[in-house]
Amino acid sequence: MTRKKIFLITMMSLFFIGVSIYPLFLIIQEMVLDRYLNSRYKIEEVIDVWNTRHQNADQYSYELASPIQWKGNIIEVLTRDTGVVAPKSRLDNDTLHVMQVTIKVNGREQSFPTQAWLPQNITKDSDYLSWLNLLKVKDNKNNMEQIAIVQRIADNWQRGDTTSQKWRILYVNEDQQVNEELFSYLERGDHLLGLKLVLSSSQSSSWIGYKSDIAYRLPSIFFPLLYPTGTFLIGLVLALLLYLRFRKLKCN
């Protein structure tokens, strides 16, 4: 093997590995974070936001139409129509209104009211889908349970714009304490559990990642099979061939 060929293979190996290693790192990072959160926390839905109660006679869930009582806490979700019609896309069949949503826990209003795009006449919990959900969260490390009230905030959100999303989560503890977590799409990397609850409760307009969205792009033959997985493997194979070649020359 001539020096020119060795140089060419070395450059090709470095190129393939160089362009592949960062996206591969992001994909693996998302897998590790999600596995950690799945092992640390047990998450269950509290309300029938998917409208599946009629499909399973054994399924039990609370209803938002009446106050939810959980371990001495009383949770109420109150809505008020602002009279403003929400922006509508071509795919929307129903007209939604900008509604003001107020959360009360044990008779006290928690934080500030938020806005959501909801039907004018709310008849079932699934009307809140993508705007509000309640989850039961158990920390397997200390066996503590909480109710998480997850809300997507409509303020300044533009339809189809993932990066302008904001969320609020109210954590209701067994001791009747309420903690608030507020974060945006750009801040999601510092709120891993919060984002896990957002994704588990379908409170995002699209599937997003903890640190990067690269792992949740629609799969195709090119991504991630050919790039970055295939290109990284090609780079490793070329590097291995060079190593074996130099080792053979050294032995001779």
Rank of each mutant, 00 (worst) to 15 (best):
N179S: 06
I68L: 01
M99Y: 11
M12Y: 08
L37I: 04
E76M: 11
V178N: 00
Y243D: 10
V150I: 13
E44D: 12
L242Y: 10
H191G: 01
V49T: 00
W157K: 14
R217P: 08
Q120L: 10
G235K: 03
S206F: 04
L241I: 11
S212V: 00
V105H: 06
N156R: 12
R80V: 11
R159C: 15
S130T: 15
M99H: 06
L8N: 07
T79R: 04
T52Q: 07
Q165N: 08
R245Y: 13
R152P: 13
L186N: 15
H191K: 08
Y22I: 09
S111F: 05
V101H: 08
I75S: 02
V237K: 06
I153A: 14
R247F: 15
W207V: 15
L195H: 00
Y22R: 07
E44K: 01
Q151P: 07
L197W: 00
D92V: 03
E76T: 08
L249Q: 15
Y171I: 03
S204M: 04
M144N: 07
E109Y: 00
A65S: 07
V46G: 00
S202F: 13
L37S: 06
V237D: 09
F15T: 11
G235W: 05
L225H: 10
I214P: 02
A148P: 10
W207I: 14
S164M: 10
R159W: 11
P67R: 02
E44H: 00
K250M: 14
K166Q: 09
F112E: 11
L238E: 15
D92Y: 03
I43N: 00
P228A: 12
K88T: 10
L226R: 08
V198S: 04
N133A: 13
M1W: 12
K88V: 09
